[in-house]
Design a protein around this nucleic acid. Structure first.
Length: 649
RNA sequence: GCCGGCAUAGCUCAGCGGUAGAGCAACUGAUUCGUAAUCAGUAGGUCCACAGUUCGAUUCUGUGUGCCGGCACCA
């Protein structure tokens, strides 16, 4: 006699066990039509699930987010059926829903190509139109393995074998086609709807392990209705326009060419942007108790052997040799060992701690060819690196202080929000559990002091210590780790860094590796996408263009430009023989934030007509006032603060 | 590195087994014009590289390189 509590707190009684479908029907035919799946005591289950006991039930309709995820999951099943129907002999593996869509990994000798999509999509529509009900069936482990073995589905059989012993094995059929699946599912394939599209093919390793076979993955997107699908596709097109590679080319910021794969040629405008960002960061670091250093680019292999990098990362290092000498030098892949060399010069006292050594360190790493991506992942990059040498007790306060600095910098750069991942102890690690406890607790405490929350990234820490990763998202929704903070008791040990404590004895410092941007290249790539090239005035590589309407105003335009320049603005003149409409268009497309238009009127009155990027409005100001206003507006955020509010003691 | 796709003018792209075209940009000339494209003309190419098939390859095949999308990797 189940009593069913509905979301509005009303209770309905049933004579005996009842399915979700029957409950929905009892409530009303409208709900029965709309209910795709139900939440039984908070857990999503099929509508056909039989409710035996008192429970709370909520029905999920197409409007709910849960439904969207199910639509995608079911779309993956439909895709798999379509593929197996069209390409006999293809084995299925896994096919989950993901952000914005779904994918399915297939095992097949000939990988799929985008040319296969139209046939597959047509078959999917057929399956959806047919609308076969999803039917759940549970099987014993042995039966399920035998079932899939008999079908030649080796991957599925292996999946079941690797499931925990006590796990219920469930299969879902949609008409003739059956898949191993935990469920739940919509009522039938018809509920998937037609708002889906296959997007791309990709190789993917079985179980994400590069030693395994490569499968052929098909990605799709699926939505509640056509309108949502269209909106998503439109959004993708928009995102493409924000791509830093596109904008970098259009705005003439940088390029990369075959002779220097993975290394950036910064053009004047791009380098101006770089320098603006670098100067800003340097001021922030100076104000936060960092001391900047500079260390060698080429360092003898012996140091890398001592640090342990030679053994672990040798194949990712660029090695240099000269004929006269029988030695190997490595282009530094990181700055840490060099900073320790500076720490080791002379005798250090606990009084000097925490010692914060910063370097805009140019590093080289031989990244796998497939990892390279525009300027986001390159082989030569400059880290905004720093190492804080401190005591155990200082880890938490130094970390909190760092998070505060990083938050300020991200906010100034136009990223009010970012994600933090906390990577704790991995399986393979060094150091005692007590040390790990201490380091992890310090990071947690620091997050609490800084008032930030994090997602746990279990087991993903470095082998020597836990870390925080600060993640920003690019235009296409890809996440990139930018900032980082790692607790490292290991390298100081290996490279023999020590200080004299209050007790007069020698101690090992803890080393905090930390970066805010991670690499300038990556951060600038994300920055370009964040603003889609339309930078705020203080960051814009060309801040203003003075454009003339008639050539009579040429001399005055030069005066205006000179005045802007004196105020520290990066300005160009456009005296070309073109209509003002064309000039407006040209400089708008070039994302110049301020257009100062001068014609006969302005020349006669010593005024300028300012036009801001993206707005048709114009403001006519006396030259001196325009200069003062733009100068104030172009002031970097850290120089606007009236006092050193963010400085620490 | 692995799977798939792509590589033609500065850019975006057509095209074809008989050695190439458009738009924009560039350059020249005319136009002096009030807020997102003034008009006309000119010039611009080892069709990524190498090998093979062919009477003939930018086009077909193979290899290499680079790029793009994923996967793996990211000290």
């Amino acid at each position: 006699m189940p009593a069913i509590t509905l979301p509005d707190a009303s209770v309905r009684l049933f004579d005996g066990p009842v399915t979700g479908t029957a409950v929905a029907e009892a409530i009303g035919p409208g709900l029965a039509r709309a209910a795709l799946v139900m939440k039984l005591d908070g857990k999503l289950v099929d509508m056909s699930t039989v409710i035996e006991h008192d429970a709370s039930v909520a029905f999920v309709t197409r409007r709910d987010d849960d439904a969207l995820e199910m639509i995608r999951h079911d779309a993956a099943h439909v895709l798999a059926e379509a593929v197996q129907d069209l390409f006999p002999g293809t084995q299925v593996t896994i096919g989950p829903s993901i952000e914005n869509g779904f994918y399915y990994d297939f095992a097949r000798n000939d990988p799929f190509t985008p040319e296969d999509f139209s046939a597959i999509e047509a078959k999917m529509r057929e399956i959806i139109t047919r609308g076969a009900k999803f039917v759940r069936q549970e099987m014993s482990r042995e039966d399920a393995i035998a079932f899939f073995q008999a079908k030649g589905e080796k991957y599925k059989a292996q999946l079941i074998e690797d499931l925990p012993r006590d796990q219920t094995i469930s299969l879902y059929s949609q008409g003739e086609w059956v898949d191993l699946c935990r469920g739940p599912h919509l009522r039938s394939t018809a509920d998937v709807g037609m708002a889906f599209k296959l997007m791309k093919v990709a190789g993917a390793y079985w179980r994400g392990d590069h030693r395994n076979a490569m499968l052929s993955r098909i990605y799709g997107t699926a939505w509640r209705d056509q309108k949502e699908l269209d909106a998503y596709l439109h959004q993708l097109e928009e995102a493409e326009r924000r791509d830093h590679r596109r904008i970098g080319k259009d705005m003439g910021l940088f390029h990369i060419q075959e002779e220097a794969v993975g290394s950036v040629f910064w053009h004047p405008k791009g380098w101006k942007l770089y320098r603006t960002v670098e100067a800003y960061l340097r001021r922030r670091l100076d104000a936060n108790g960092y001391q900047e250093v500079r260390t060698p680019q080429l360092v003898d292999r012996s140091l890398w052997e001592k640090s342990g990098h030679w053994d672990n990362y040798r194949q990712h290092m660029f090695i240099a040799q000269v004929e006269e000498e029988d030695k190997f030098l490595a282009l530094k892949p990181m700055n840490c060992p060099c900073h320790i060399q500076i720490f080791r010069q002379g005798m250090r006292s606990y009084r000097e701690l925490p010692l914060r050594l910063a370097e805009m360190g140019c590093c080289h790493r031989y990244e796998p060819s497939g990892a390279l991506h525009g300027i986001m992942r390159v082989r030569q990059f400059t880290q905004d690196d720093a190492h804080i040498f401190c005591t155990d007790e200082q880890i938490a306060s130094e970390t909190a202080r760092f998070i505060s600095l990083l938050s300020q910098v991200y906010s100034d750069m136009g990223f009010p929000t970012f994600r933090i991942k906390f990577s704790d102890r991995p399986q393979a690690r060094i150091g005692s559990d007590a040390d790990w406890d201490k380091a992890e607790a310090a990071l947690r405490e620091a997050c609490q002091i800084a008032g930030v929350t994090f997602e746990l990234n279990p087991g993903e820490g470095a082998f020597y210590g836990p870390k925080l990763e600060f993640v920003l998202r690019d235009a296409i929704g890809r996440d990139w780790q930018c900032g980082t903070l790692q607790v490292d008791p290991n390298l100081p040990e290996r490279l023999d860094a020590e200080y004299v404590g209050e007790d007069g004895a020698r101690h090992r410092p803890i080393m905090l590796h930390r970066a805010i941007f991670g690499s300038f290249e990556r951060f600038l790539g994300i920055l370009i996408e964040q603003y889609a090239g339309r930078f705020p005035l203080w960051l814009a590589p060309v801040q203003a263009v003075v454009a003339t309407i008639v050539s009579d105003a040429d001399a005055y335009a030069e005066d205006v430009a000179a005045a802007f320049r004196r105020a520290g603005l990066e300005v160009r003149t456009d005296l070309s023989n073109q209509k003002i409409n064309a000039k407006v268009r040209e400089h708008s497309l070039a994302h110049v934030p301020v257009l100062a238009v001068v014609g006969r009127n302005e020349a006669a009155n010593r005024t300028v007509a300012l036009r801001r990027l993206g707005s048709p409005a114009q403001e006519i100001l006396p030259l001196a006032e325009a200069v003062a206003r733009l100068k104030a507006e172009a002031t970097p955020p850290d120089l606007r603060e009236s006092t050193g509010a963010t400085e620490f003691a």
